[in-house]
């Protein structure tokens, strides 16, 4: 059986090593936080200047001075730290984050990432911190459906959308399979309800 979004988020969370410093991108990756356990001791980084970010704030907890990268009100955990933007991105670019989890339009078998711009002529380009995260973290996980809504593969030989980073993705977590990508190409780590041959046929790739 293919994985639901929630099962996929749990699968990613289970792969994050205890004590890791982790940045979860906007959108689907945010759900990974719900599956991290206290015993894992994972510290969440948010690009707008905080380590030790807690869950979303509700009611009286809401403080306009405390938001996540998606500008939603959040909470702080014991041991939290605040810092300015140049420091926050030095943490990324300097290779200090253990893991970041991002969404994607496309990932290539060598780990190129396209997740910021569809390239459509009327689209307003907006990159945010995507390029900094992509090239900075020690491990870059992508969470996405393996196929687009129209059935075209999102894991591809070469990205056709404008790139976010070259050779930066280490592992793809999808509804149908977990797949490692990199200089050696794509290799299936685990498949959900399909075998490698069926995956290869869906993706037009040799896996």
């Amino acid at each position: 059986m293919s994985l639901s979004k929630d099962e996929l988020a749990a699968r990613v969370a289970a792969d994050i090593a205890p004590g890791s410093y982790v940045n979860l991108g906007i959108g689907q990756p945010t759900a990974v936080a719900d599956h991290l356990t206290r015993e894992q001791g994972v510290v969440l980084h948010t690009e707008n200047g905080m380590l030790g970010m807690g869950p979303l704030a509700h009611g009286a907890e809401i403080d306009p001075d405390l938001t996540n990268a998606g500008k939603q009100p959040v909470t702080e955990l014991p041991g939290a730290a605040y810092f300015h933007h140049a420091d926050s991105f030095a943490m990324m670019r300097g290779g200090h984050l253990d893991v970041c989890v991002l969404g994607a339009f496309q990932v290539s078998v060598r780990g190129d990432l396209a997740n910021w711009h569809t390239g459509a002529p009327d689209a307003i380009p907006a990159v945010g911190g995507a390029m900094d995260l992509a090239i900075g973290a020690k491990q870059v996980f992508v969470m996405m459906t393996l196929l687009a809504k129209d059935g075209t593969p999102k894991l591809v030989r070469e990205c056709t959308y404008p790139l976010t980073g070259l050779g930066c993705v280490t592992r793809v977590y999808s509804d149908l399979a977990v797949i490692d990508v990199g200089p050696g190409g794509a290799s299936v780590v685990e498949a959900f309800g399909v075998d490698s041959e069926e995956l290869g046929a869906l993706l037009h790739l040799d896996l």
């Binding site: 300015h84 140049a86 991105f89 945010g128 900094d132 900075g136």
Partner: peptide, 20 residues
């Protein structure tokens, strides 16, 4: 932007901070 009344330079967020 769509009416062509404002120019836009998009800069990666960390590069924006580091340039300043």
């Amino acid at each position: 932007y769509r009416e062509g009344r404002v120019e836009l330079e998009v800069v990666p967020q960390g590069t924006l901070a580091e340039r300043m």
